[in-house]
Design a binder for these strands. Structure first.
Lengths: 274, 274
DNA sequence: CTGTAAATTCCATTATTTGGAACTTAATTT
DNA sequence: AAATTAAGTTCCAAATAATGGAATTTACAG
């Protein structure tokens, strides 16, 4: 792979599929698409064959269909890579997302107040999907990770989200987590995580103490709908040398205020039920 | 729809499907996904039923599978909207795109030189898909349109791309274009477009004289692989009041130089064949 | 309540996918 | 350059999933 050394924590939450969905042909095709898009580099047919538990003939036709539809592409060396049609689908998914549209001005305000990168994310299964960010015009920048799925147990937004998850849902989710030690301070067990979640519930905000990426800290607050069918969070993130824990502690207030404003507006625009 | 008034030319190149692909079940599912993602607002079951030429039962199961897979979502009112899994797929497609990775530093340099928004796009069928942009920190900003498919006949990058398309491919493509008069200066016939393409071939760069969006001008240069299997372009875009045609004419040189540098690096990194 | 439209479920028929094997093509070794 | 091996592609009867018309249930309006 060519890959300039510009991206940091990309491609994180690998195929923790969990429930085997009953979606017929589509499910099998999407599993193959996942394999190729989540790989670090273009894959040859045989590579995919080894990863997918499918017979040759079947896989060959599936890949052919995915390529034909533009969901995958074949590079000059005959290897399979993500296709550009995915971008077209996603740009609309993003542009129209109502949560993102409602939150955008509040994120901008929070960024003006702190001068650091602001992230907006939603909880999907055990992953946080980043929906938006407002970047600081500072020399140290994190690479865009909009759309990226990151684990919930080692990100500020993730832990904030877990803190408002109903108890039964949390009990369900915890055992399914596969802890990956990204840094020395990453949670590696449900116990320590659960303890911290207790603290987050009472504080109303969560910290990421370089748990996902060394040298990166953040403070986050949860955002949720009344019936908890929708759960996400907002955070301020930056390099540890600039963001002391004291500073993060101060910022907990504006971050929580921002989350509150977004929730208020959601209630008005999307109705109070959810 | 809620829709803040922030986006300009979004969701352009609507379902100009063209060739009916033979991709079995996947093709039918993707056609439905296209319908929903390309709509301006969430669609109810009956709305989709009217648009898709499918029987009730079939469509119902297809939508169910798409939702189950996270490609679509059902909102509070039971309407279908694009799903967040699309974002996850796309973020990887984008992050790993080699053309984009190679071009990125050159786009940044061109932006420093001009101070205006720089776009990178590739030709896919009769659409330009925007792969990257570097935005000007100016009061008037165009909304992000990375991943958006725009028509080739009324965008700078599109017309630049057409100018390096092999003659036979161009002859094939022209009749399939469905001209949509976005502004008074949009091309509405193949003849006038073909005439301009002739000029672009000799000049080496293309202008967009407010043809896609009123008040927006640009100058673009084509980027192509030796065998023309890959065609795209780079452009500098901005509001007409700031970008006189004279200024754009001056910028044609740095834009073409940028395109040249990107092509040189592609030849080195991806091999000369393509 | 009642009537109407929308959404969902059902199931025999039909079409597509499946998967093992044979085959072709490309790469590597002797 | 021929032989060997690996990679990729095609084939087709059997298995599986998709189809679509109609019946049923649910949501909504008068």
């Amino acid at each position: 792979m060519i890959s300039g050394g510009d991206s940091m924590a990309q491609a994180d939450d690998k195929g923790a599929t969990g429930t085997p969905r009953d979606t017929g042909t589509l499910g099998k095709l999407m599993a193959v698409l996942d394999l190729v898009t989540h790989a670090d580099a273009p894959l040859r047919f045989t590579d995919i064959l080894a990863l997918a538990s499918q017979p040759r003939g079947t896989l060959h036709r599936q890949l052919g269909h995915l390529v034909e539809e533009g969901l995958l592409e074949i590079d000059a060396e005959g290897r399979y890579a993500p296709g550009l049609r995915l971008l077209d689908f996603a740009s609309r998914s993003w542009a129209r997302n109502e949560f993102r549209l409602i939150a955008a001005p509040h994120l901008a305000a929070l960024h003006r107040e702190t001068g650091e990168t602001v992230h907006l994310g939603v909880l999907r299964g055990s992953s946080i999907i980043y929906l938006d960010k407002v970047e600081g015009h500072q020399p140290v920048r994190m690479y865009s990770q909009i759309g990226n799925a990151s684990p919930c147990y080692c990100t500020g937004v993730g832990k904030a989200a877990l803190s408002v998850l109903p108890a039964d849902k949390l009990r369900e989710l915890l055992p399914s987590l596969r802890f990956n030690r990204f840094t020395p301070s990453t949670h590696v067990s449900g116990e320590t995580l659960l303890t911290e979640i207790g603290d987050i519930v009472s504080a109303g905000h969560a910290y990421d103490r370089e748990e996902h990426e060394a040298g990166i800290r953040c403070v986050a607050a949860p955002i949720w709908s009344d019936d908890r069918s929708f759960i996400g969070g907002v955070s301020v993130t930056g390099p540890a040398y600039r963001l002391s824990m004291e500073l993060l502690h101060e910022w907990a207030v504006p971050v929580q205020v921002t989350a509150r404003k977004i929730m208020d507006e959601m209630r008005i625009r999307l109705g109070p039920r959810r």
